[in-house]
Design a binder for these strands. Structure first.
Lengths: 191, 191
DNA sequence: GTCTATACATTGATAGAC
DNA sequence: GTCTATCAATGTATAGAC
């Protein structure tokens, strides 16, 4: 049996609201009412609207990094590894499009300190993808002229899903992630 | 000699502000002060904050469609045509990253009527890319299993630039657009 | 067509009772 | 830890003088 605390209910409400209306467009009253509480109750569990955003953003960044790190460790074959990394990264963004939207589009709304903290996760995500490409080139299996640029482009495929993906739409996350993984291999495989 | 009207100065100010702080995070006072005017002067030239957004968004959508349509007409060779389309679409998003950000990220902030109007431009952009891929397959030059999905992915490369691209950064728009065009050809060329 | 002044609603956050 | 009531600041938009 899982107990959901008031603090967590507020975070879930914030995810809904921020993803739907953006951070600036969301009122603390909206968050409170989605959580079934009064406006004042928000501040018993969270310091401010921004600290609620930081909780969502930090957790989202951590989970995205974990997804791509696990995939990177799943195989030593450069092609299979790349396929797993792109598939899982894109699938995570489809399955978590609301959190992903907050991670990507409300980055600027964080305080300077909080933004600096989540920035380290972003760098780690990019580095993980760059390292996988560079290793594939070293093993003579991949052909990648511009490793940082290509790494960024591969991540863009997943990231851009959060702009429009809605669960229950005409295409499943699995379908899109599989497409992205196929395209990634075509983009980088030595011919 | 180009004369800039007060109306245009306000639009330029709105582009700056909306791109920097988002639509909901921008105040009409901020727009007015960036244009060197009083808050009240805004309403002499524009009906509301949302109508200012609509002006920016509609013009941005039109220009993006024009860019990809011109590129589509620039060649009948599927590979050269695809290269031109992806190059010019990505370059436009790099060169116009502030307008592009408003086009992409403030779509939901438009009224229902205004959103429906710009939606037609979005469909045309997607259709233009899909048609180019389908024709390349018909000519036996391209190998694209999922035409709509691949078209979307190619557009994503350019669109995602607006999330982070800043003029004067370490990579030029030309450099990124060239990379995207190369990746596009690798993704779709028959081997 | 610009301004100052302001109407009126809503905002993030707090006070204090229970 | 929840509520009602409220504060001070700020929001969009308008009124009316020049």
């Amino acid at each position: 049996m899982t107990t959901i605390t008031a603090r967590e209910r507020l975070i879930n409400a914030a995810v809904e609201a921020f993803a739907e209306k953006g951070f600036a467009g969301t009122t603390t009253r909206d968050i409170a009412s989605r959580a079934g509480m009064s406006p004042a109750a928000v501040y018993v569990h969270h310091d401010s609207k921004e600290s609620l955003l930081f909780s969502v953003s930090l957790d989202g960044h951590r989970r995205a990094l974990e997804v791509i790190t696990s995939a990177a460790a799943s195989s030593t074959d450069p092609v299979n590894r790349l396929r797993a990394m792109v598939y899982n990264f894109s699938l995570w963004h489809a399955d978590n499009s609301r959190v992903g939207r907050i991670v990507q589009y409300e980055y600027h709304a964080l305080t300077d300190e909080h933004r600096a903290e989540v920035a380290t996760y972003r760098r780690d995500i990019e580095k993980t993808m760059q390292d996988a490409l560079a290793d594939g080139v070293d093993q003579g299996v991949l052909d990648v002229v511009d490793v940082p640029g290509t790494a960024f482009s591969l991540l863009s495929l997943g990231v851009d899903l959060v702009r429009w993906f809605e669960p229950g739409g005409s295409r499943s996350g699995h379908e899109l992630a599989t497409l992205h993984a196929d395209l990634a291999v075509r983009m980088t495989r030595l011919r």
